[in-house]
């Protein structure tokens, strides 16, 4: 899905558990219908970010892994 995110959160310099906590706070600040793109190099993010999205009542639209740059990109929408 190609969608321009409303908010972009670059967590590539952060390590566990900071990317997930920054994502959690960013979701809370989203207006309904807005989307959030999160970039991270944290290897556990592929487990923890879907969990925090679920707990926050948001929707994970996509999760892409860029293996060359060791970066995962998440697109999240607040309903």
């Amino acid at each position: 899905m190609n969608e321009t995110p409303t908010v972009r959160l670059d967590c590539r310099e952060d390590v566990c558990p900071v990317p997930v906590l920054r994502t959690k706070e960013a979701i809370a600040k989203l207006t309904p219908g807005a989307t959030l793109e999160v970039l991270t190099k944290d290897p556990m993010a592929t487990v923890d970010i879907p969990a925090v999205v679920h707990k926050a009542g948001a929707v994970l639209l996509s999760m892409k892994a860029d293996e060359e740059n060791e970066t995962a990109t998440f697109l999240i929408r607040r309903p």
Binding site: V15, C16, P17, V20, M44, V47, D48, P50, A51, H54, K55
Partner: peptide, 19 residues
């Protein structure tokens, strides 16, 4: 290693995809 056990403090709800 970094402390990925941080989220083990969560109460896991049924159906939650958390580990």
């Amino acid at each position: 290693p970094f402390p990925c056990s941080y989220f083990h403090g969560w109460k896991v709800e049924p159906g939650s995809p958390t580990r």
